[in-house]
Computed example of a mutant assay.
Amino acid sequence: MDKKVTIYSKEICYYCTMAKKYLDKQGVDYKVVNVSKHPEEMEKMIKATGYKGVPQLEIGEEWVVGYNPKQIMKKLKSIE
Score class of each variant (00 low, 15 high):
residue 20 K to H: 04
residue 21 K to D: 09
residue 67 Y to E: 01
residue 32 V to A: 11
residue 23 L to R: 01
residue 6 T to K: 06
residue 68 N to Y: 14
residue 53 G to W: 06
residue 52 K to L: 13
residue 75 K to P: 12
residue 53 G to E: 08
residue 49 T to E: 03
residue 59 I to G: 01
residue 67 Y to D: 00
residue 17 T to Q: 15
residue 24 D to H: 11
residue 22 Y to I: 12
residue 51 Y to V: 13
residue 68 N to L: 12
residue 27 G to H: 04
residue 1 M to H: 09
residue 80 E to I: 10
residue 36 S to A: 12
residue 22 Y to S: 10
residue 48 A to D: 05
residue 44 K to W: 11
residue 49 T to F: 08
residue 69 P to Y: 07
residue 18 M to R: 14
residue 1 M to R: 12
residue 36 S to T: 10
residue 34 N to W: 03
residue 11 E to A: 13
residue 42 M to E: 15
residue 3 K to S: 03
residue 38 H to G: 08
residue 3 K to R: 12
residue 34 N to Y: 06
residue 5 V to F: 02
residue 23 L to W: 04
residue 5 V to M: 04
residue 43 E to K: 14
residue 17 T to M: 15
residue 7 I to R: 03
residue 21 K to P: 00
residue 68 N to P: 02
residue 73 M to E: 15
residue 55 P to E: 00
residue 67 Y to T: 02
residue 24 D to C: 05
residue 59 I to C: 01
residue 59 I to D: 00
residue 76 L to E: 04
residue 64 V to Q: 01
residue 48 A to S: 05
residue 37 K to H: 10
residue 49 T to K: 05
residue 47 K to V: 07
residue 73 M to K: 15
residue 41 E to Q: 12
residue 16 C to V: 07
residue 14 Y to A: 11
residue 37 K to S: 12
residue 69 P to K: 05
residue 36 S to D: 13
residue 50 G to E: 07
residue 74 K to Q: 12
residue 6 T to Y: 00
residue 51 Y to N: 15
residue 75 K to A: 08
residue 16 C to R: 03
residue 35 V to Y: 05
residue 56 Q to F: 08
residue 49 T to C: 06
residue 17 T to E: 15
residue 62 E to K: 08
residue 72 I to D: 03
residue 51 Y to D: 13
residue 7 I to E: 00
residue 73 M to A: 15
residue 43 E to L: 12
residue 30 Y to T: 06
residue 24 D to F: 04
residue 21 K to Q: 13
residue 23 L to K: 01
residue 56 Q to S: 09
residue 46 I to C: 07
residue 53 G to N: 08
residue 55 P to L: 00
residue 30 Y to P: 02
residue 34 N to K: 11
residue 62 E to I: 01
